[in-house]
Design a binder for these strands. Structure first.
Lengths: 245, 245
DNA sequence: CGCGCTCTTGACTAGGGTCAAGTGCAGTGG
DNA sequence: CCACTGCACTTGACCCTAGTCAAGAGCGCG
């Protein structure tokens, strides 16, 4: 059993929030994965419009998915942290509808589409767990959409960072009050639909209000309670609260 | 063979853009569906947080999926037209992450989750087609997110209406230049992340520029070329251009 | 040393929100 | 037949949030 299914493996941790994988499920999960590949920051892993695209599992590091508009603007759709899949939802499409790029140096494994398909036929428990993970990622995007459409800059930023914190904690990469976050303000702004300049002002505002600090690649919550109140943060949509069914 | 698989059936038309269903696939598709249910406009079909939620197929009428934020604001995530599924992506989640409401009187069928699961094991062609439809809906949401994050009000509105037109045409409910659209300005504004007042101004602007008219429940494109140019409209993400693989 | 990148701050602008008033129905009930 | 109500749509005046433009600081690196 290699790291991908060891107790500290982020994917295993994440899936455990949904169901408990049996040894045979975990074994098949192993078989889906190709060898580990290292990419350095900036590497485009999947690009929009790519045919014969694969899905990947992110073992280590951060990536983001994004779309570029015809005027050159970029909108980041979601960021991925260890234990997340890249491009799983787009697999049935003829071409990927979004791009994925490494934000830090990363370690990934390609997922065999053929064996994945086999899992759907012969490994229903595992298949359901994978569908769950993909459905949860969809729920993240939906929440993100609601935030960009209807929340002001401060609330939106706070909510996004709270959500990331919850995700990091789930895969064992952060505490309740703090986590390390390698996103630059430029990147964060592209995710939030803001300009980097305005995001900077918002971050200062939150710092001065003793709500949260994002400095030197670390997010620290100073007043989680107030933050949760103003953002209406409720992680129900992360679907990780209830016990396994 | 009832209407759900007849040549003019919107779902069949939509899936045909992806693959050609064999008779046995179509037959199994029939078996997934419960009896037709009629709901009148305003009826909540699935609500956010609902447990034991089902998915549905929309035969007739329009619905939308939305989230409500804690301050009462509403963000519409997507609208559904005949041939679209309601709540398919959320099926593996413990609770639905969004609500679905009928915008007009609608006809829907419940999809049997058990038989759907059986299709994944025994009807790989059909299962892939259903996964494709769900993946495409995800791509719509992603595009919508990019639009709200990075397009200005006019571009965003024009793009949304162009996209809807392409979807309507695919299921045989509109021509290249016009389609009937029962969305009120209030609803459209909630979808676009605008206020109804500003949307009204935008619609007037487009009318006066002879770009498009949205009046009396009908969208008419006056200058499709210019519209496509300013929005950068490219329906590749709808994944309906290429021939079946 | 200079280059480039991230972050920071200030001054100004504009796109879109808010408030307010009014029009034109369709429906309802006296 | 006509008031009355409610809803969708329209328009104007004003304001504020967030974008734009500009400048500078701190820092890693060739």
């Amino acid at each position: 059993m290699n790291q991908a299914t060891s107790p500290t493996d982020p994917l295993t941790r994440k899936l455990s929030a949904f169901t408990s994988l049996r040894p045979e499920d975990a074994a098949f999960l192993e078989k889906l994965l190709g060898p580990r590949i290292c990419c350095s920051a900036g590497k485009e892993i999947i690009y929009e419009g790519q045919h014969r695209h694969s899905a990947y599992l992110l073992h280590e590091g951060w990536t983001c998915s994004y779309k570029r508009l015809h005027d050159g603007a970029r909108q980041i759709i979601d960021v991925q942290i260890p234990g997340d899949f890249l491009g799983a939802r787009s697999l049935p499409l003829r071409a990927s509808d979004q791009s994925f790029v490494a934000l830090t140096d990363v370690e990934i494994s390609r997922i065999s589409t053929e064996k994945l398909w086999e899992a759907f036929r012969n490994e229903p428990r595992l298949a359901l767990a994978l569908l769950w993970a993909t459905a949860r990622d969809g729920a993240l995007v939906v929440e993100h959409l609601a935030g960009i459409g209807r929340r002001d800059a401060l609330t939106r930023t706070a909510h996004f960072l709270l959500e990331l914190g919850a995700r990091m904690k789930l895969v064992g990469r952060g505490t309740a009050d703090s986590y390390s976050c390698p996103l630059s303000q430029n990147i964060l702004a592209d995710a939030l639909g803001l300009t980097a300049i305005h995001l900077n002002r918002v971050l200062r505002q939150m710092r001065e209000a003793n709500l949260l600090v994002f400095r030197d690649g670390v997010v620290t919550f100073l007043d989680r309670e107030t933050l949760a109140e103003i953002t209406g943060f409720d992680l129900a949509y992360l679907d990780q609260s209830a016990p396994a069914r």
